[in-house]
Amino acid sequence: MSSRTKEYLTRAWKTALFPAIVFLFFGIATGGRIFTARSIVVILRQSVLPAIIIMAMMPNLSLGMMDFSIGAVVMTSAIFAGNLMNMTNTGYVGLIAFSLIIAVALTSLTGFLNNKLRVPLLVISLGLALVYEALPMIAFPKTQTAKINVKYAALAQMPTILIVLAVAFVIYFILTNKTVYGHNIRALGGNSELATRAGLKVDRITQLSFTISGVFAGIAAAVYMCSNGQVNAPTAFSSLVTVMNAFLGLFLGMFLSRFCDASLGIIISVITMTTLLNGLLMLGVSSTSRNIFSSAVLFVLLALSSNQPYFTRWVNNTKRAKLANEAYSKANSN
Protein backbone atom coordinates (compact mmCIF):
# COMPACT_ATOMS: atom_id res chain seq x y z
CA MET A 1 0.00 0.00 0.00
CA SER A 2 1.45 3.37 -1.01
CA SER A 3 1.96 6.06 1.62
CA ARG A 4 -0.68 8.26 -0.05
CA THR A 5 -3.29 5.49 0.07
CA LYS A 6 -2.36 4.83 3.68
CA GLU A 7 -2.77 8.51 4.53
CA TYR A 8 -6.09 8.64 2.68
CA LEU A 9 -7.43 5.66 4.61
CA THR A 10 -6.18 7.01 7.94
CA ARG A 11 -7.90 10.35 7.33
CA ALA A 12 -11.05 8.59 6.15
CA TRP A 13 -11.11 6.44 9.25
CA LYS A 14 -10.63 9.42 11.55
CA THR A 15 -13.35 11.42 9.77
CA ALA A 16 -15.72 8.45 9.96
CA LEU A 17 -15.50 8.75 13.73
CA PHE A 18 -17.64 11.86 13.36
CA PRO A 19 -20.93 10.11 12.47
CA ALA A 20 -19.92 7.27 14.78
CA ILE A 21 -19.89 9.64 17.75
CA VAL A 22 -23.29 11.07 16.76
CA PHE A 23 -24.60 7.51 16.37
CA LEU A 24 -23.21 6.54 19.77
CA PHE A 25 -24.73 9.63 21.40
CA PHE A 26 -28.21 8.79 20.10
CA GLY A 27 -27.64 5.16 20.96
CA ILE A 28 -27.28 6.17 24.59
CA ALA A 29 -30.02 8.83 24.43
CA THR A 30 -32.57 6.41 22.89
CA GLY A 31 -31.66 3.58 25.22
CA GLY A 32 -30.12 1.57 22.40
CA ARG A 33 -33.11 1.77 20.05
CA ILE A 34 -30.97 3.16 17.26
CA PHE A 35 -28.53 0.23 17.54
CA THR A 36 -30.59 -2.00 15.29
CA ALA A 37 -29.84 -3.28 11.81
CA ARG A 38 -33.09 -1.71 10.61
CA SER A 39 -32.13 1.74 11.90
CA ILE A 40 -28.72 1.51 10.28
CA VAL A 41 -30.29 0.45 6.98
CA VAL A 42 -32.77 3.34 7.16
CA ILE A 43 -30.00 5.84 7.88
CA LEU A 44 -27.87 4.57 5.01
CA ARG A 45 -30.81 4.47 2.61
CA GLN A 46 -31.91 7.99 3.52
CA SER A 47 -28.37 9.25 3.06
CA VAL A 48 -27.97 8.21 -0.55
CA LEU A 49 -30.18 10.78 -2.25
CA PRO A 50 -28.82 13.87 -0.42
CA ALA A 51 -25.27 12.59 -1.02
CA ILE A 52 -25.82 12.34 -4.77
CA ILE A 53 -27.55 15.74 -4.85
CA ILE A 54 -24.53 17.26 -3.09
CA MET A 55 -22.30 15.65 -5.73
CA ALA A 56 -24.45 17.48 -8.27
CA MET A 57 -23.98 20.77 -6.46
CA MET A 58 -20.26 20.48 -5.74
CA PRO A 59 -18.82 21.07 -9.24
CA ASN A 60 -20.38 24.52 -9.40
CA LEU A 61 -19.69 25.21 -5.76
CA SER A 62 -16.00 24.53 -6.43
CA LEU A 63 -16.20 27.43 -8.86
CA GLY A 64 -17.77 29.59 -6.18
CA MET A 65 -21.33 29.27 -7.56
CA MET A 66 -24.40 27.94 -5.79
CA ASP A 67 -27.00 26.45 -8.16
CA PHE A 68 -30.39 26.77 -6.48
CA SER A 69 -32.17 25.14 -9.40
CA ILE A 70 -30.71 21.71 -8.73
CA GLY A 71 -33.75 20.56 -6.68
CA ALA A 72 -36.05 21.57 -9.53
CA VAL A 73 -33.81 19.76 -12.01
CA VAL A 74 -33.96 16.56 -9.93
CA MET A 75 -37.74 16.65 -9.51
CA THR A 76 -38.54 17.70 -13.07
CA SER A 77 -36.16 15.09 -14.50
CA ALA A 78 -37.77 12.47 -12.28
CA ILE A 79 -41.28 13.38 -13.49
CA PHE A 80 -40.27 13.46 -17.15
CA ALA A 81 -38.20 10.26 -16.91
CA GLY A 82 -40.98 8.44 -15.05
CA ASN A 83 -43.56 9.36 -17.65
CA LEU A 84 -41.27 8.66 -20.60
CA MET A 85 -40.32 5.29 -19.12
CA ASN A 86 -44.01 4.42 -18.82
CA MET A 87 -44.71 5.60 -22.37
CA THR A 88 -41.81 3.72 -23.91
CA ASN A 89 -41.97 0.79 -21.52
CA THR A 90 -38.19 0.76 -21.24
CA GLY A 91 -37.90 -0.08 -17.52
CA TYR A 92 -34.85 0.84 -15.50
CA VAL A 93 -32.72 1.50 -18.56
CA GLY A 94 -35.24 4.01 -19.83
CA LEU A 95 -35.72 5.61 -16.43
CA ILE A 96 -32.01 6.12 -15.88
CA ALA A 97 -31.31 7.18 -19.46
CA PHE A 98 -34.18 9.68 -19.56
CA SER A 99 -33.25 11.04 -16.13
CA LEU A 100 -29.67 11.60 -17.25
CA ILE A 101 -30.61 13.15 -20.60
CA ILE A 102 -33.16 15.56 -19.14
CA ALA A 103 -31.05 16.55 -16.13
CA VAL A 104 -27.97 17.11 -18.29
CA ALA A 105 -30.05 19.16 -20.73
CA LEU A 106 -31.45 21.33 -17.96
CA THR A 107 -28.16 21.94 -16.12
CA SER A 108 -26.40 22.56 -19.44
CA LEU A 109 -29.03 25.19 -20.19
CA THR A 110 -28.36 26.77 -16.78
CA GLY A 111 -24.64 26.76 -17.58
CA PHE A 112 -25.21 28.21 -21.04
CA LEU A 113 -27.31 31.07 -19.68
CA ASN A 114 -24.82 31.63 -16.89
CA ASN A 115 -21.99 31.97 -19.42
CA LYS A 116 -23.90 34.10 -21.88
CA LEU A 117 -25.89 36.42 -19.64
CA ARG A 118 -23.08 37.07 -17.12
CA VAL A 119 -25.70 37.47 -14.42
CA PRO A 120 -24.88 35.97 -10.98
CA LEU A 121 -25.86 32.30 -10.83
CA LEU A 122 -27.89 32.99 -7.70
CA VAL A 123 -30.30 35.09 -9.77
CA ILE A 124 -30.31 32.82 -12.82
CA SER A 125 -30.75 29.62 -10.86
CA LEU A 126 -33.64 30.95 -8.77
CA GLY A 127 -35.38 32.13 -11.92
CA LEU A 128 -34.73 28.86 -13.71
CA ALA A 129 -35.91 26.87 -10.67
CA LEU A 130 -39.36 28.37 -11.21
CA VAL A 131 -39.19 27.64 -14.94
CA TYR A 132 -38.04 24.03 -14.41
CA GLU A 133 -40.74 23.53 -11.77
CA ALA A 134 -43.32 24.65 -14.34
CA LEU A 135 -42.14 22.29 -17.10
CA PRO A 136 -43.98 19.15 -15.88
CA MET A 137 -47.21 21.15 -15.63
CA ILE A 138 -46.78 22.27 -19.22
CA ALA A 139 -45.79 18.84 -20.53
CA PHE A 140 -48.28 16.82 -18.49
CA PRO A 141 -51.08 19.31 -17.80
CA LYS A 142 -53.61 16.70 -16.79
CA THR A 143 -51.63 14.67 -14.30
CA GLN A 144 -48.78 17.05 -13.46
CA THR A 145 -47.16 14.03 -11.91
CA ALA A 146 -45.26 10.82 -12.60
CA LYS A 147 -46.21 7.48 -11.15
CA ILE A 148 -44.21 4.31 -11.71
CA ASN A 149 -44.83 0.68 -10.92
CA VAL A 150 -43.94 -0.29 -7.37
CA LYS A 151 -41.54 -2.96 -8.66
CA TYR A 152 -39.11 -0.21 -9.61
CA ALA A 153 -38.71 0.71 -5.97
CA ALA A 154 -35.95 -1.92 -5.87
CA LEU A 155 -33.47 0.63 -7.18
CA ALA A 156 -34.02 2.63 -3.99
CA GLN A 157 -33.87 -0.43 -1.74
CA MET A 158 -30.92 -2.07 -0.04
CA PRO A 159 -28.45 -3.18 -1.26
CA THR A 160 -28.99 -1.76 -4.79
CA ILE A 161 -29.11 1.79 -3.55
CA LEU A 162 -25.70 1.38 -1.92
CA ILE A 163 -24.33 0.15 -5.23
CA VAL A 164 -25.77 3.26 -6.90
CA LEU A 165 -24.08 5.42 -4.27
CA ALA A 166 -20.79 3.54 -4.71
CA VAL A 167 -20.92 4.06 -8.49
CA ALA A 168 -21.69 7.77 -8.03
CA PHE A 169 -18.88 8.08 -5.48
CA VAL A 170 -16.33 6.41 -7.78
CA ILE A 171 -17.33 8.63 -10.72
CA TYR A 172 -17.17 11.72 -8.54
CA PHE A 173 -13.82 10.76 -7.00
CA ILE A 174 -12.23 10.04 -10.37
CA LEU A 175 -13.62 13.20 -11.94
CA THR A 176 -12.36 15.47 -9.18
CA ASN A 177 -9.03 13.81 -8.45
CA LYS A 178 -7.84 11.99 -11.54
CA THR A 179 -8.87 14.10 -14.49
CA VAL A 180 -7.67 17.31 -16.09
CA TYR A 181 -11.18 18.65 -15.55
CA GLY A 182 -10.91 18.15 -11.77
CA HIS A 183 -7.55 19.94 -11.60
CA ASN A 184 -8.73 22.75 -13.85
CA ILE A 185 -11.83 23.29 -11.79
CA ARG A 186 -9.77 23.56 -8.60
CA ALA A 187 -7.45 26.04 -10.28
CA LEU A 188 -10.38 28.07 -11.54
CA GLY A 189 -12.07 28.00 -8.15
CA GLY A 190 -8.81 29.05 -6.48
CA ASN A 191 -8.17 32.09 -8.65
CA SER A 192 -10.15 32.49 -11.84
CA GLU A 193 -8.13 35.45 -13.10
CA LEU A 194 -4.83 33.63 -12.80
CA ALA A 195 -6.24 30.44 -14.25
CA THR A 196 -7.51 32.42 -17.23
CA ARG A 197 -4.11 34.02 -17.69
CA ALA A 198 -2.56 30.56 -17.62
CA GLY A 199 -4.67 29.59 -20.60
CA LEU A 200 -7.66 27.81 -19.06
CA LYS A 201 -10.83 28.22 -21.08
CA VAL A 202 -13.16 29.44 -18.37
CA ASP A 203 -16.44 29.24 -20.28
CA ARG A 204 -15.73 25.72 -21.50
CA ILE A 205 -14.77 24.47 -18.05
CA THR A 206 -17.80 26.16 -16.48
CA GLN A 207 -20.10 24.63 -19.09
CA LEU A 208 -18.55 21.21 -18.51
CA SER A 209 -19.04 21.70 -14.80
CA PHE A 210 -22.78 22.24 -15.29
CA THR A 211 -23.00 19.22 -17.56
CA ILE A 212 -21.29 17.04 -14.96
CA SER A 213 -23.60 18.48 -12.34
CA GLY A 214 -26.44 17.25 -14.57
CA VAL A 215 -25.07 13.69 -14.59
CA PHE A 216 -25.34 13.48 -10.81
CA ALA A 217 -28.68 15.29 -10.82
CA GLY A 218 -29.86 12.64 -13.31
CA ILE A 219 -28.75 9.78 -11.06
CA ALA A 220 -30.46 11.54 -8.14
CA ALA A 221 -33.64 11.93 -10.23
CA ALA A 222 -33.79 8.20 -10.97
CA VAL A 223 -33.27 7.36 -7.29
CA TYR A 224 -35.86 9.97 -6.28
CA MET A 225 -38.45 8.57 -8.67
CA CYS A 226 -37.87 4.98 -7.52
CA SER A 227 -37.87 5.78 -3.82
CA ASN A 228 -41.10 7.81 -4.01
CA GLY A 229 -43.02 5.86 -6.65
CA GLN A 230 -44.93 9.03 -7.41
CA VAL A 231 -43.55 12.52 -7.84
CA ASN A 232 -45.78 15.57 -8.10
CA ALA A 233 -44.77 18.70 -9.96
CA PRO A 234 -43.17 21.13 -7.54
CA THR A 235 -44.42 24.70 -7.27
CA ALA A 236 -43.24 27.95 -5.71
CA PHE A 237 -39.73 26.73 -4.86
CA SER A 238 -40.98 23.58 -3.12
CA SER A 239 -38.11 21.83 -4.96
CA LEU A 240 -35.73 23.79 -2.72
CA VAL A 241 -37.37 22.33 0.38
CA THR A 242 -37.01 18.84 -1.09
CA VAL A 243 -33.24 19.22 -1.26
CA MET A 244 -32.91 20.94 2.14
CA ASN A 245 -31.27 17.88 3.71
CA ALA A 246 -28.70 17.98 0.95
CA PHE A 247 -28.02 21.65 1.72
CA LEU A 248 -27.44 20.85 5.38
CA GLY A 249 -25.14 17.98 4.43
CA LEU A 250 -23.35 20.18 1.94
CA PHE A 251 -22.18 22.65 4.57
CA LEU A 252 -21.12 19.88 6.90
CA GLY A 253 -19.34 18.21 3.97
CA MET A 254 -17.41 21.39 3.29
CA PHE A 255 -16.38 21.41 6.97
CA LEU A 256 -15.31 17.76 6.83
CA SER A 257 -13.39 18.19 3.56
CA ARG A 258 -10.70 19.89 5.65
CA PHE A 259 -9.94 16.56 7.21
CA CYS A 260 -10.44 14.14 4.34
CA ASP A 261 -11.10 13.96 0.61
CA ALA A 262 -14.13 16.06 -0.39
CA SER A 263 -15.93 13.14 -2.04
CA LEU A 264 -15.70 11.07 1.12
CA GLY A 265 -16.54 14.12 3.22
CA ILE A 266 -19.84 14.43 1.36
CA ILE A 267 -20.90 10.90 2.19
CA ILE A 268 -19.81 11.08 5.82
CA SER A 269 -21.53 14.43 6.29
CA VAL A 270 -24.82 13.18 4.90
CA ILE A 271 -24.70 10.04 7.06
CA THR A 272 -24.04 12.27 10.08
CA MET A 273 -26.96 14.56 9.32
CA THR A 274 -29.31 11.62 8.65
CA THR A 275 -28.23 9.94 11.90
CA LEU A 276 -28.90 13.18 13.72
CA LEU A 277 -32.38 13.61 12.24
CA ASN A 278 -33.30 9.96 12.82
CA GLY A 279 -31.97 10.08 16.36
CA LEU A 280 -34.10 13.13 17.10
CA LEU A 281 -37.12 11.43 15.55
CA MET A 282 -36.60 8.44 17.84
CA LEU A 283 -36.49 10.79 20.80
CA GLY A 284 -39.92 12.02 19.78
CA VAL A 285 -38.78 15.49 18.76
CA SER A 286 -41.26 17.23 16.46
CA SER A 287 -40.43 17.93 12.83
CA THR A 288 -40.06 21.68 13.44
CA SER A 289 -37.82 21.17 16.45
CA ARG A 290 -35.75 18.65 14.49
CA ASN A 291 -35.08 21.21 11.80
CA ILE A 292 -34.18 23.87 14.37
CA PHE A 293 -31.91 21.47 16.25
CA SER A 294 -30.12 20.18 13.16
CA SER A 295 -29.56 23.74 11.94
CA ALA A 296 -28.23 24.71 15.36
CA VAL A 297 -25.82 21.77 15.33
CA LEU A 298 -24.65 22.87 11.91
CA PHE A 299 -24.07 26.44 13.10
CA VAL A 300 -22.08 25.20 16.09
CA LEU A 301 -19.93 23.00 13.87
CA LEU A 302 -19.28 25.78 11.41
CA ALA A 303 -18.49 28.20 14.23
CA LEU A 304 -16.07 25.70 15.77
CA SER A 305 -14.50 25.08 12.41
CA SER A 306 -14.13 28.76 11.57
CA ASN A 307 -12.73 29.66 14.96
CA GLN A 308 -10.35 26.74 15.32
CA PRO A 309 -7.32 28.76 14.11
CA TYR A 310 -8.11 31.50 16.65
CA PHE A 311 -8.33 28.97 19.45
CA THR A 312 -5.01 27.38 18.43
CA ARG A 313 -3.42 30.81 18.21
CA TRP A 314 -4.77 31.77 21.65
CA VAL A 315 -3.22 28.65 23.21
CA ASN A 316 0.13 29.28 21.50
CA ASN A 317 0.10 32.97 22.41
CA THR A 318 -0.57 32.21 26.06
CA LYS A 319 2.46 29.93 26.18
CA ARG A 320 4.60 32.47 24.36
CA ALA A 321 3.48 35.34 26.58
CA LYS A 322 4.63 33.38 29.63
CA LEU A 323 8.09 32.82 28.15
CA ALA A 324 8.39 36.43 26.97
CA ASN A 325 7.39 37.80 30.38
CA GLU A 326 9.96 35.60 32.10
CA ALA A 327 12.68 36.72 29.68
CA TYR A 328 11.72 40.39 30.12
CA SER A 329 11.76 40.17 33.92
CA LYS A 330 15.13 38.42 33.81
CA ALA A 331 16.62 41.02 31.45
CA ASN A 332 15.35 43.91 33.59
CA SER A 333 16.57 42.41 36.85
CA ASN A 334 20.14 42.04 35.48
Partner: peptide
Protein backbone atom coordinates in the same frame (compact mmCIF):
# COMPACT_ATOMS: atom_id res chain seq x y z
CA UNK B 1 0.47 34.83 -9.57
CA UNK B 2 -0.06 31.39 -8.04
CA UNK B 3 -3.18 29.52 -7.00
CA UNK B 4 -3.07 28.51 -3.34
CA UNK B 5 -5.47 25.57 -3.23
CA UNK B 6 -3.61 23.39 -5.75
CA UNK B 7 -0.17 21.77 -5.64
CA UNK B 8 3.03 23.44 -6.77
CA UNK B 9 3.20 21.01 -9.68
CA UNK B 10 -0.34 21.87 -10.77
CA UNK B 11 0.56 25.54 -10.60
CA UNK B 12 3.65 25.04 -12.72
CA UNK B 13 1.57 23.27 -15.37
CA UNK B 14 -1.74 25.17 -15.07
CA UNK B 15 -3.25 25.30 -18.53
CA UNK B 16 -0.91 22.56 -19.76
CA UNK B 17 -2.15 19.54 -17.85
CA UNK B 18 -3.50 18.03 -21.07
CA UNK B 19 0.12 17.24 -21.97
CA UNK B 20 0.11 14.69 -19.14
CA UNK B 21 -3.29 13.17 -19.78
CA UNK B 22 -4.79 10.35 -21.74
CA UNK B 23 -8.54 10.39 -22.45
CA UNK B 24 -8.88 13.16 -19.87
CA UNK B 25 -7.23 11.16 -17.09
CA UNK B 26 -4.22 12.88 -15.64
CA UNK B 27 -0.89 11.31 -14.64
CA UNK B 28 -0.13 13.40 -11.56
Amino acid sequence: GTIGNISVASNVFTGRLEEFSKFGFINM
